[in-house]
Amino acid sequence: MKMENRACEPGRVEEIKEIMKLSGYICDDAIATAIFLSVKLGKPLLIEGPAGVGKTDLAKAYSLAVGAPLIRLQCYEGLDEAKALYEWNYKKQLLKIQADRHEERTWDDIEDDLFSEDFLLPRPLLKAITSPERAVLLIDEVDKSDVEFEAFLLEVLSDFQVSIPELGTIKARAIPYVFITSNRTRDISEALRRRCLYLYMEFPSAEREIEIVRLKVPEIREELASSVVAAVRYLRTMDLRKAPSISETIDWARALCVLGCEVISEEVLENTLSLLIKEQKDLARVEPVLKIITRRASS
């Protein structure tokens, strides 16, 4: 499904908030300003923060908001240029040689044929660069990639051009909007940081989270939404291995609506706790304080 490219570039920070809200993402001033500048200055936006605050969703929502195609590069240990940039389609090249076997052709002709764009398998980075319309490039969890890959990324992100020995240099037709996320399992190099704008995302304020819950779960009553958020926020202050993320808040709110709960009682909380707490050790810590949490939620 291809969305029409609205091609409207926001002229003010407020407009970012509006279009993002239409795509189901509530921004505060800090987030909206960072996106705005990243678009205006044509620089990648590096987003850091705890897991589950909506770093990846931000890029997705922005691509929806401006109607640009989203190209995602998920980083992992061992990711290399071939998987991120391009590969030659080796099997197709072999087939071509087989098919051409009986034609009288010189090696030069064949070579030109074999190393043409027909046999190129573009991977996310090349796709983003060659995309005819301005794309949103999401480089997710860059901290999981190797240091060498980061250096390579630096090169691509500073010039938005790639050289393929057989084809020459390919320049970006439209410089993509780049969002890079990191969970800080290792430190990102200073050089990459300097190339980007920086946004540190925290868990949202209570008001913003209530707004998010009400946007995503429209059927929820206002009081229940604020109880849900109060309970989740309390859980986040506990020293848990994995604090509940925003998407878990939304799941929980949705579940409570489906179950037809009006208020969060201790029993309801106990039965639905598995939606919020996903680690055995955390569960053991939370169970004794269910009463406190329900009290927090109802106040």
Partner: peptide, 13 residues
């Protein structure tokens, strides 16, 4: 907004 703008440009850590 002014503050966040400067912050996202100047602070990278």
């Amino acid at each position: 907004v002014f503050k966040f703008a400067l912050r996202s440009v100047l602070i990278k850590n």
